[in-house]
Nucleic acid binder design. Structure first.
Lengths: 193, 193
DNA sequence: TACTTGACTTGACATGATGTCAAGTATTAC
DNA sequence: GTAATACTTGACATCATGTCAAGTCAAGTA
């Protein structure tokens, strides 16, 4: 068994456990057991809990093809189309990602490295939002009285995982409802009709 | 020293520590020390960590006069005014409340009682949102194509502590900017101009 | 064939937080 | 003067994290 095999087995096990049990009380020992590996093997592959989580996010991104999905947004013909595609990408990605995001959020207060990784992702999402707002502005559909930075912040916040969690997981919106209503919200908030 | 004194001293100490240090790694021993009380006194007054947190939210609500603030919303002359007052109440209350909310959110996954208390508050806020939406509908300003339940969900999500945290704490919006922009967002999303 | 190396296992250990228990002390209330 | 109340002190069990040392086992190399 090569190290690589162990490593991905551990990642898969962690992913399954955290996704299924909502992050709470998933212990390193349980992850090791689920990966059919000794607890110490986990520490040989990952420095600590935070390190495992950071690796896990990357792993999930890759597994789900995040990069390609983001490309789809950039490839949209217009700013408005980009907006629509962004919401639709979210709808597809979030169900598989939110549990790991919760887990990171829980640890980041006590783990510098996790906090950095968290802020990294946060910033790159914000960059994406700025790009879309810039396109809206170029297309001349951005509300005149709204500063671009504020528009990007709003887009970023409204399309956050947290909002999705609130509306879909808590309030029971279907994916289709979320997609349509959030798009409309963004339309009426960010654009002039 | 009566029990009541110890109890409020503990609550004040916990409030200060959690508010200052952002909830992470605030230990029962630290709280006890800050309250100049033995660690066991904490367990005599509160069953466990979760119980302390639950008591803490109530304590903060009372201290900050949450009930009166909510009354102000109900007293607003129109639905649109209620909406505005709601946002303004939020701006004033959130800074003193968010740290405790974070702490509860962190524990609720592993603590049934905390989860119940969390859902309680969540539901009562949702009720408040429904009431405002009902007033908007009665005033005839609610968007026709938007179901009241969806409107309430959106209002609830947009005015959540999380959104406030994102925009004010993370993105650095001032209180005034938050108040104005969120009100406008709600206006353009929920009402027909 | 013997030797080394890499990847892992086993089991022990230190640390730190939570929550519990038993026994003692001081203040108040009757 | 006694009993109850509200603590304090100190010990203890439990559990998760992370570390360490020694051993196994298969593959590649001399």
């Amino acid at each position: 068994m090569s190290r690589k095999n162990s490593r991905t087995r551990i990642l898969d096990a962690a992913l399954t456990l955290i996704t299924k049990r909502g992050e709470a009380g998933v212990t390193m020992a349980e992850i090791a057991k689920a990966a059919r590996v000794s607890r110490q093997a986990v520490y040989l592959n990952f420095a600590d809990r935070g390190d495992l989580l950071i690796a896990l996010v990357r792993y999930v991104d890759e597994k789900r093809g995040l990069a390609q999905e983001i490309q789809k947004i950039a490839n949209a013909p217009t700013g408005l189309e980009a907006l629509r595609v962004m919401v639709s990408v979210q709808v597809r990605m979030n169900p598989g990602v939110w549990a790991i995001a919760r887990a990171m959020d829980a640890v980041r207060r006590t783990d510098q490295a996790v906090e950095r990784s968290w802020l990294d992702r946060l910033n790159s999402r914000l960059e994406g939002c700025r790009a879309i707002v810039a396109r809206l502005a170029r297309d001349g559909v951005l509300r005149k009285e709204l500063p671009a930075s504020a528009a990007a912040d709003i887009l970023w916040s409204v399309t956050s995982l947290r909002t999705w969690e609130d509306l879909v997981l808590q309030r029971g919106w279907t994916a289709a409802q979320y997609e349509e209503r959030i798009y409309k919200l963004l339309l009426s908030t960010l654009t002039s009709k």
